[in-house]
Design a protein around this nucleic acid. Structure first.
Lengths: 160, 160
DNA sequence: GCCATTTATCTTGACGTCAAGATATGCCGT
DNA sequence: ACGGCATATCTTGACGTCAAGATAAATGGC
């Protein structure tokens, strides 16, 4: 009987006409993702980053040398609006972790490049972040992890 | 090969020392919850509510007559800060969907009560919201839904 | 070559959220 | 009764996000 079960019991009492199966799955998913986001945020904060800024730095890092992508490339990989991405880049630029360099091939565009400090920051944070993700999922057996991943993949395929 | 797979391939190329199993689960969960939140928001918007305001109205509704709870009760059921709850109640009060009534038993406190308009709004939205949740999960068989729910319950139990 | 359209990024104003602290009331031991 | 601690709510200031629109450069049809 977890927190979501209590909600479902209330609904079944008050509105027995409403089916609660989907409610349970959606409710657990929402609460879980909130908890996970907070856990992730906490570890990255210890490395001086927010999960938002880490997202951008990590996207640049995993794109490989020379660690440069346009704001449009970053946008297509991160599920945020263009205004949000501009703001994220502004913050990272102020912190000296990325810099905007001109794109010689297209002057509408610009390239966002990891600085030395930015590369150091993301390398340091990435290890801790991955270790934290492993900690958070360590309660599951290998089989359960595979099962969960498969179900999430199928669910996600509804949208992407 | 979904969006998350592409990210994992990049990491395995750039940082083969990092294990990607947990990254995959966490990444899919995050993207999925973002998609689901947007879908939910859209349906509630058609009923003049945000998911935030619906959360409060639904909590009051499922608590049963007389549909009154203190801000503290609402807080303990919704994973937001006290400042956020004050703001949500302010908005709902301005919209005429709830009202603050004095709590005769404890004058530090106050009771948040559904108005007639608030009750009508939540009853209308709840049906559409549940139907939407069922739509979003309809790609799964009964067995898959049970499996997913069980895994999410176990994962959530890590935190609650 | 020129103008209309498309593409890429940035700007603006509004919203929801949070952490930290302020305020006001209740409670309890003496 | 009273002082001090606990509890309940609200306030403040800062952030991150979004939708809509502004700006500027590239492209394509004529």
């Amino acid at each position: 009987m977890d927190h979501v079960d209590k909600i479902l019991v209330q609904w079944r009492t008050e509105r027995p006409d409403l089916d609660t199966e989907a409610m349970g799955i959606m409710g657990r998913l929402k609460r879980l993702s909130t908890h996970l986001a907070r856990e992730v945020e906490q570890v990255l904060q210890q490395h001086g980053l927010s999960s938002s800024s880490f997202d951008v730095l990590a996207t640049l890092r995993r794109s490989g040398t020379p660690y440069r992508l346009s704001p449009g490339d970053l946008l297509s990989m991160t599920m945020v609006s263009s205004g949000t991405m501009t703001n994220r880049i502004d913050q990272l630029e102020k912190a000296g972790l990325v810099e905007r360099v001109v794109n010689p091939d297209d002057r509408r565009s610009v390239l966002i490049a990891l600085t030395g400090a930015g590369l150091a920051a993301v390398e340091g944070a990435a290890g801790a972040h991955v270790a934290n993700q492993q900690r958070l999922t360590q309660g599951f057996s290998a089989e359960e992890k595979a099962q969960l991943d498969a179900l999430l993949r199928k669910f996600l395929a509804t949208f992407e």
